[in-house]
Simulated scan of single mutants.
Amino acid sequence: MKALTANRLLDGEVVFWKAGQWVERFADAELFSDDEAATAAEAHGKNQPTVVVDVYLIDLIEAEGVWAPISYRERIRALGPTNHLAHGKQAEGGAVIEALQHAHGAARSTGRVNLIKRK
Rank of each mutant, 00 (worst) to 15 (best):
L57E: 05
L57Q: 08
L57I: 02
L57P: 07
L57R: 09
I58L: 14
I58T: 06
I58M: 15
I58R: 04
D59F: 03
D59L: 06
D59Y: 03
L60R: 02
L60Q: 05
I61N: 14
I61Y: 02
I61T: 12
I61F: 00
I61H: 06
E62R: 12
E62A: 10
E62N: 10
E62W: 04
A63F: 00
A63G: 09
A63V: 07
A63R: 10
A63M: 07
E64W: 02
E64S: 12
E64K: 11
G65R: 03
G65Y: 00
G65E: 04
V66R: 10
V66K: 07
V66Y: 01
W67V: 04
W67H: 15
W67L: 09
W67E: 13
W67D: 08
W67C: 09
W67P: 12
A68Y: 01
A68V: 02
A68D: 02
P69M: 10
P69Q: 10
P69C: 09
P69F: 08
P69I: 05
P69Y: 06
P69S: 10
I70V: 14
I70P: 00
I70M: 14
I70D: 12
I70Q: 14
I70G: 13
S71D: 09
S71G: 12
S71T: 04
S71M: 05
S71E: 07
S71P: 00
S71K: 04
Y72C: 11
Y72T: 11
Y72D: 12
Y72L: 13
Y72R: 14
R73M: 10
R73W: 05
R73I: 06
R73E: 07
E74K: 11
E74T: 09
E74R: 12
E74S: 15
E74M: 15
R75N: 07
R75P: 01
I76M: 13
I76W: 02
I76N: 11
I76C: 14
R77H: 14
R77L: 15
R77E: 15
R77N: 15
R77A: 15
R77Y: 14
R77G: 08
A78N: 06
A78G: 11
A78D: 03
A78V: 01
A78I: 01
A78W: 00
A78R: 01
A78T: 01
L79D: 02
L79G: 11
L79K: 02
L79A: 09
G80R: 00
G80H: 00
P81V: 09
P81G: 14
P81A: 14
T82Y: 03
T82K: 05
T82Q: 13
T82I: 09
N83F: 12
N83H: 09
N83E: 14
N83M: 11
H84Q: 08
H84C: 15
H84N: 11
H84Y: 08
H84L: 09
H84S: 13
H84T: 02
L85P: 13
A86S: 11
A86Q: 05
A86T: 06
A86C: 07
H87K: 07
H87L: 15
H87P: 00
H87I: 06
H87V: 07
G88Q: 02
G88N: 01
K89W: 00
K89D: 08
K89V: 10
K89A: 13
Q90S: 07
Q90G: 05
Q90I: 00
Q90N: 03
Q90A: 10
Q90F: 04
Q90D: 02
A91I: 00
A91Q: 03
